[in-house]
Structure formats: structure tokens, C-alpha cells
Amino acid sequence: MLKELHVRMKDIPKQDRPRERLINKGASHLSDQELLAIVIGSGTREESVHDLAIRLYQHFDGIELLREATLEELVQLKGIGEVKAVSILAAIELGNRMGRFKKTDRYVIRCPEDGANYVMEDMRLLKQEHFICLFLDTKNQVIHQQTIFIGSLNASISHPREIFREAIKRSCASIVCLHNHPSGVRLYS
């Protein structure tokens, strides 16, 4: 009688494991089965997580039918308990929501007053100085607002590094920087 040989994840060189490949190369470099293996998390005593992911993928003839799987259908597969089934369904739902996500109409900054009006209601009653940046796309639409620094009653110190880090992360085309004067005194230099 021949015994099947199952490759365990710890027997695979570290750089070839799905998690490490995702970290080093990005999620787009992984197969559907490898992504499933990451979502599932672990295999069983008899089957590695990679083999379990392949079997799950084949059972549903790929991701299209897996997308429609129910909790009951998933737990019927050997090695997929309720916890793993819930993780799979949560990942599928998250993917579905991302696919349906539509950007809403965004506020457009055409002049300095537009920027002030965008934040005025939120900033007018603050008791400390806040340094806020609006990050804009190529159409001058606000794509993100972030408080970069909260200061004292009459001072707010910020570093360009903090502003540009967020600007690069958001791939913005323009930045509008604003701050309030809770003391009511405006100093000009």
C-alpha cells in the first residue's frame, strides 16, 4: 500500500511560501490557490494548507463558483470547519464590497475660500491650533483630509516630512495647508 506524500508548509523553502511571497513580491504575484491558502491559514494533520486550498479551489471549479459558496457548502468539505469557512466568506464579501465601491462626488477647491469653507465648521471651535492638510487630485477634488499636528493655544509646528509622506501615500496632485487661531490673534511675518 502506497502512502501519499503531503508537502507541509514548513517543508517549503521560506521564500517560496505564499505569505512570504506576498510580502516580498505583492499579492498580484500569487495564484488564486495561494491567496486562498493565506485566507484559510492552516491545513490539517493529513493535508497542508496549500493542498487544502487547491482542493477547495477545484471543488468549486475556480473562484467564480467559490464566490457564491455558502457556509453550509464550505463546511461540508473535509478540512474546512466553521472558522475557516467564516474567514473565506468574509474575504469574499470584502472583495465583493471593494468591487461595488464607487467614489462619491468630491468637494472641489477652486480658491482659498473653498479650502477655508471645507474645514471651517470643524475647526472654528477648536481650543488648540490644528495644522490640517487637504490632499487633492488632478481635478482639485479633495481625496483626503488629515490633521498633521495639534499644537498649543497659539502655536502649531509641523514638519514637511509629515505632509509629503501623506501626499505621496495618497498620490495627490496638490496640497492645501490650513491652520486655525484659537487665541483669536493672528501673527504675520
Score class of each variant (00 low, 15 high):
L2Y: 10
K3M: 09
H6A: 10
V7N: 02
M9A: 10
K10Q: 13
D11W: 08
D11N: 10
Q15A: 12
R19K: 12
R19S: 02
E20V: 08
R21E: 02
L22Q: 11
I23F: 13
I23L: 14
I23N: 07
N24W: 01
G26S: 03
G26N: 05
A27D: 09
S31M: 03
S31N: 03
L35V: 13
A37D: 00
G41W: 05
T44I: 00
E46N: 12
E46V: 03
H50I: 15
D51I: 06
D51R: 09
R55V: 03
L56Q: 01
L56P: 02
Q58N: 15
Q58R: 15
D61K: 11
D61T: 07
G62P: 03
L66C: 05
L66N: 07
R67K: 14
R67S: 14
E68G: 04
T70A: 06
L74A: 04
V75C: 06
Q76H: 10
L77F: 09
L77C: 04
G79C: 05
I80G: 09
V83Q: 11
A85V: 01
V86T: 15
V86D: 09
V86W: 06
S87L: 06
S87D: 13
S87H: 13
L89I: 08
A90M: 07
A90P: 00
G95S: 15
G95K: 12
N96G: 07
R97K: 15
M98S: 04
R100G: 10
K102H: 09
K103M: 13
D105T: 08
D105K: 11
R106N: 10
Y107M: 04
V108W: 01
V108G: 00
I109N: 01
I109M: 08
R110W: 00
R110G: 10
C111P: 00
C111I: 07
C111T: 10
P112V: 04
D114W: 05
N117L: 14
V119T: 11
M120R: 13
D122K: 13
R124N: 04
R124F: 04
K127H: 11
Q128C: 03
H130V: 11
F131G: 08
F131Y: 12
C133V: 12
L136H: 02
L136A: 06
T138N: 12
K139V: 03
Q141E: 15
V142T: 00
Q145E: 14
I150W: 00
G151W: 00
G151P: 03
A155L: 12
I157M: 11
H159P: 00
R161C: 07
I163V: 15
R165T: 14
R170Q: 15
S171R: 15
I175Q: 05
V176D: 01
L178F: 02
H179W: 05
P182S: 07
V185L: 11
